[in-house]
Simulated scan of single mutants.
Amino acid sequence: MAVQAGRGIDVPDVTCVINWQMASTIEKYVHRIGRTGRAGKQGIAITFLGPQDEETMYDLKQELARSPLSTVPNELAHHPAARQRITREMKRKRDDHDE
Protein backbone atom coordinates (compact mmCIF):
# COMPACT_ATOMS: atom_id res chain seq x y z
CA MET A 1 0.00 0.00 0.00
CA ALA A 2 1.41 3.42 -0.93
CA VAL A 3 0.84 6.37 1.35
CA GLN A 4 1.85 9.93 0.66
CA ALA A 5 2.95 11.37 3.98
CA GLY A 6 3.07 15.09 4.48
CA ARG A 7 5.03 17.07 7.01
CA GLY A 8 4.16 16.27 10.60
CA ILE A 9 2.26 13.08 9.82
CA ASP A 10 3.52 9.93 11.55
CA VAL A 11 2.95 6.74 9.60
CA PRO A 12 4.00 3.72 11.67
CA ASP A 13 6.01 0.82 10.23
CA VAL A 14 7.23 2.55 7.08
CA THR A 15 9.68 0.23 5.31
CA CYS A 16 10.25 2.16 2.07
CA VAL A 17 10.41 5.88 1.29
CA ILE A 18 10.56 7.12 -2.30
CA ASN A 19 11.63 10.73 -2.75
CA TRP A 20 10.54 11.87 -6.19
CA GLN A 21 12.32 15.15 -5.46
CA MET A 22 15.51 15.50 -3.42
CA ALA A 23 15.29 17.66 -0.32
CA SER A 24 16.96 21.06 -0.53
CA THR A 25 19.36 20.27 2.34
CA ILE A 26 20.93 17.11 3.71
CA GLU A 27 19.24 17.73 7.06
CA LYS A 28 15.80 17.68 5.42
CA TYR A 29 16.77 14.54 3.50
CA VAL A 30 17.79 12.74 6.70
CA HIS A 31 14.50 13.76 8.30
CA ARG A 32 12.53 12.39 5.33
CA ILE A 33 14.24 9.02 5.22
CA GLY A 34 14.20 8.77 9.00
CA ARG A 35 10.60 7.62 8.68
CA THR A 36 12.02 4.19 7.73
CA GLY A 37 14.21 3.88 10.82
CA ARG A 38 11.89 4.46 13.73
CA ALA A 39 12.28 2.39 16.89
CA GLY A 40 15.39 0.61 15.64
CA LYS A 41 13.74 -0.72 12.50
CA GLN A 42 15.37 -0.66 9.08
CA GLY A 43 14.01 0.27 5.71
CA ILE A 44 14.85 1.43 2.21
CA ALA A 45 14.95 4.97 0.89
CA ILE A 46 15.01 5.66 -2.85
CA THR A 47 15.73 9.19 -4.02
CA PHE A 48 15.72 10.44 -7.60
CA LEU A 49 18.44 12.99 -8.39
CA GLY A 50 18.79 15.33 -11.33
CA PRO A 51 20.88 18.34 -12.37
CA GLN A 52 18.82 20.54 -10.06
CA ASP A 53 20.19 18.55 -7.09
CA GLU A 54 23.89 19.26 -7.63
CA GLU A 55 24.05 21.42 -4.50
CA THR A 56 23.20 18.45 -2.27
CA MET A 57 25.10 15.64 -4.03
CA TYR A 58 28.37 16.11 -2.13
CA ASP A 59 26.61 16.13 1.24
CA LEU A 60 24.50 13.13 0.24
CA LYS A 61 27.58 11.16 -0.76
CA GLN A 62 29.26 12.01 2.56
CA GLU A 63 26.16 11.04 4.56
CA LEU A 64 25.80 7.70 2.76
CA ALA A 65 29.52 6.96 3.18
CA ARG A 66 29.27 7.51 6.96
CA SER A 67 26.29 5.19 7.32
CA PRO A 68 27.06 1.63 8.41
CA LEU A 69 23.91 0.44 6.59
CA SER A 70 24.11 2.35 3.31
CA THR A 71 26.29 2.26 0.24
CA VAL A 72 27.10 5.08 -2.15
CA PRO A 73 25.75 4.27 -5.62
CA ASN A 74 28.45 4.36 -8.32
CA GLU A 75 26.58 7.06 -10.23
CA LEU A 76 26.73 9.36 -7.20
CA ALA A 77 30.27 8.37 -6.20
CA HIS A 78 31.60 9.36 -9.62
CA HIS A 79 29.36 12.35 -10.35
CA PRO A 80 31.35 15.59 -10.76
CA ALA A 81 28.97 17.45 -8.41
CA ALA A 82 29.67 14.92 -5.63
CA ARG A 83 33.43 15.55 -5.65
CA GLN A 84 33.19 18.88 -3.84
CA ARG A 85 30.47 20.93 -2.21
CA ILE A 86 28.82 23.11 -4.86
CA THR A 87 27.38 26.36 -3.59
CA ARG A 88 24.59 28.32 -5.26
CA GLU A 89 27.15 30.98 -6.12
CA MET A 90 29.40 28.43 -7.87
CA LYS A 91 26.42 27.04 -9.78
CA ARG A 92 25.25 30.52 -10.79
CA LYS A 93 28.71 31.45 -12.07
CA ARG A 94 28.94 28.22 -14.05
CA ASP A 95 25.46 28.71 -15.51
CA ASP A 96 26.28 32.32 -16.44
CA HIS A 97 29.49 31.14 -18.12
CA ASP A 98 27.61 28.50 -20.15
CA GLU A 99 25.21 31.04 -21.65
Rank of each mutant, 00 (worst) to 15 (best):
Q84L: 02
W20P: 00
H31M: 05
F48V: 13
R83G: 15
I46G: 10
P68N: 13
L69V: 15
A45N: 11
Q4L: 08
D96Y: 05
R32L: 03
E63R: 07
H31K: 07
E89D: 14
P12K: 09
R94T: 01
P12L: 04
H78Y: 04
E75F: 01
I86K: 15
A2D: 02
D10Y: 04
T56H: 12
K93N: 14
R32T: 01
Q84G: 07
G43N: 11
L76S: 11
I9M: 10
D96K: 13
H78P: 03
A5E: 04
K28D: 09
Y29R: 01
I9H: 06
L76T: 07
E99R: 15
Q21A: 13
R88S: 09
E75Y: 01
R32Y: 01
R35T: 04
N74R: 10
V14G: 12
R35D: 08
R94V: 03
M57Y: 06
D53L: 07
M1C: 04
E89L: 14
N74F: 01
R66N: 15
V14L: 04
I9Y: 00
P51Y: 01
K91Y: 03
I44F: 08
S70H: 08
H78A: 12
R7A: 07
Q62P: 00
D10W: 04
I18D: 08
K91G: 10
E99D: 11
T56P: 09
H79T: 06
A65H: 00
R94G: 13
H79Q: 14
D59L: 07
I9Q: 15
K61A: 14
P73F: 02
K91F: 02
L64T: 06
T36W: 02
S70K: 03
E55Q: 13
Q52W: 04
D95R: 14
T25M: 05
V17K: 03
K41P: 02
Q84T: 10
C16T: 10
D13H: 10
P80F: 13
A82Q: 02
A2F: 04
K41Y: 03
D95Y: 03
Y58H: 15
H78Q: 15
W20G: 12
N74K: 10
A81K: 08
V3I: 06
K61P: 06
A2N: 03
R38V: 02
K91N: 14
P51N: 15
P12H: 09
I46P: 04
P12T: 00
P68Q: 10
P51E: 15
P51F: 03
L76R: 12
N19W: 02
R7P: 12
Q84P: 00
R38S: 05
A23E: 11
